[in-house]
Design a protein around this nucleic acid. Structure first.
Lengths: 206, 206
DNA sequence: AAATGTATAAATGTATACATTTTGGAGGAT
DNA sequence: ATCCTCCAAAATGTATACATTTATACATTT
């Protein structure tokens, strides 16, 4: 088992909430779990730190990230900035087959919505919205920020109570894109993000 | 010599242009240079990859990042988005002693401008502009993006020909901040970045 | 000459053993 | 009780040795 696979497995545990924010990760325990020495485990932890999943400090145990409400706030601000920019650029460069892919992602995410994979479907949908912008680096930064939120959502057991509203938001987003209504689309997305931010912050302690 | 120090030394080599974009980094050679085994070198390389200094692929040699013009373009776009946002937020929350620090950074950067540390002074100045926004994560993202540009600027031997204009831009930025002229400040910064983008792209090959 | 295949050298990945640092708790002082 | 100090146990950091993969040079073919 290589570092990448160890990192991928641990990432799945973190984004699913099995490992919660602030929880310790001991090299020895992980090494035993995957039946390897601590060397590939160390590599895996560094990979995870690079993706923003854990905090690493020399000589200290690795810990699942655990952001304060004000840090979460900054993350949502950054998401607003980057995601609305991606959306604008996407609309400006939108082509026919992009809409086909978006419709497909929407349908798929509606199916996932009721399952425990709703977050995957949600991201796949939003990614399909932003893809026409052709901004790989920006998209990857958005993915990192979303993952950060998702870790806390899963860790604090946030229930997606507003599912129906969010699904309707998605429909409206697609409609706005189809008619190239840039400002309207951005407005829907901004509210969508504000809702998500509120829901998460309400579930957080401090 | 620990992983952090090795990484810091190699980072200095990269941002100064001693190690240029696309250049190989072999674990064995680095280990010999710092008289350590390859284990801490591997850690150092992972740290550098996390900061975006090098590309790492399993079983392959590490390489200094080497972006295409279109990737550089995206980086400058992101810088524009994030840096102008930091600037706006900074102006809205600006307090008296912030301006004192900004003036100090400006004076210091004017001294550095003629030396080989001009990039350090430039970043210290811009950081002092953005600091009042109190957005640590956003600031750190800006720092990463700037470092990416700097690596290519150093590697392609870009000469700061427009030094005088840039120093004047800095003066004008401070003036705009002092009078809380948000839009004017953002406009100056946007042009400042556009100039830097042009200068770098002109020096790049493909 | 260009392209393909192959062998050997060289580089990276991992396990084990040991050094160094942190951690968590026992015991005593305030 | 609460806060120290100190020590043993446990965790992390590093060196060495070996396994695995990649890369370079060279021969072969088209």
């Amino acid at each position: 088992m290589s570092a990448e696979k160890i990192a991928a497995t641990l990432e799945a545990d973190i984004v699913s909430g099995v490992l919660r924010p602030g929880e310790d990760l001991k090299q020895g325990e992980i090494a035993a779990r995957f039946s390897v020495s601590r060397i590939p485990v160390r590599d895996a932890l560094q990979l995870m730190a690079a993706r923003g999943l854990i905090d690493l400090e020399r000589n200290r145990r690795a810990r699942v990230i655990d952001l304060s409400p004000s840090e979460i706030d900054e993350v949502y601000h950054l998401r607003g900035l980057l995601e609305t920019d991606c959306l604008r650029q996407a609309i400006r460069q939108l082509e026919a087959d992009d809409l086909v892919k978006i419709e497909a992602a929407l349908a798929h995410s509606n199916i996932d919505a009721a399952t425990d994979r709703w977050a995957d479907g949600d991201w796949a949908f939003h990614k399909s919205l932003y893809a026409p912008a052709k901004r790989p680096r920006e998209l990857s930064m958005v993915e990192d920020l979303r993952r950060t939120c998702r870790i806390h959502i899963a860790g604090y057991g946030v229930l997606p109570t507003l599912t129906d509203k969010w699904l309707k938001d998605h429909e409206n987003l697609v409609a706005a894109m189809r008619s190239r209504a840039e400002d309207r689309a951005v407005d829907i997305l901004a509210r969508h993000l504000a809702d998500a931010r509120e829901t998460l912050l309400a579930a957080m302690p401090g």
